[in-house]
Amino acid sequence: MKPTPEHNERIATMTFASVYPHYVTKVEKKGRTEDELQQVIEWLTGFDKSKVITLINEKVTFKTFFQNAHLNPNAHLIKGVICGYRIEDIENTLTKQVRYLDKLVDELAKGRKMDKILRQ
């Protein structure tokens, strides 16, 4: 599947605060912790827990969230299918970055070892 311009725009305007609780629920339901989720977010974006809380409180969009992020140089190693989209085939940079985060959360929830998730 290929993301449409409308899909890309919807992702760009979605707030991180609206999605974060779903990430927490997903990982906790599978026996992982919010601290592990935070570790994954920090690895990908450089945002520590206090910065993530600030961004949630400010209700920033994913566009703003990733504009302020310092993406990990190994983020390009995140591959596979998430939400029906093959990450390496996504052309829109922001959509690809959001799918990187989705994929990491999915791997965490599936019980993958942290060193594998963090591409170490």
Rank of each mutant, 00 (worst) to 15 (best):
A75L: 03
E36D: 07
F16S: 07
M114A: 07
K63T: 09
H22A: 05
V24W: 08
R99K: 11
T95H: 12
N57I: 00
V60N: 09
D35N: 15
V52L: 07
T25V: 07
I117Q: 02
R119A: 12
L94S: 05
I53T: 14
P3A: 03
P21N: 06
L77Q: 14
R86H: 11
V24E: 01
I78K: 08
I41R: 04
F16I: 05
L37T: 02
M14T: 15
E107N: 10
Y85V: 07
G46Y: 02
E88I: 09
I78A: 05
I53W: 12
C83K: 13
S50N: 09
F16M: 10
V60P: 04
L108D: 01
N8H: 07
Q67D: 13
T33S: 15
M14H: 12
F16R: 08
K116T: 12
K110N: 15
R99E: 12
V19Y: 03
L77I: 08
N92A: 07
M1D: 13
Q67K: 13
F65Q: 00
T45M: 00
R10V: 03
K113L: 15
R10P: 01
M1F: 10
I90K: 02
A75I: 02
R112W: 11
K116H: 06
Y20S: 07
E58V: 05
L71Q: 07
R32V: 01
D115S: 11
L118W: 07
R86W: 00
A109P: 12
R119Q: 14
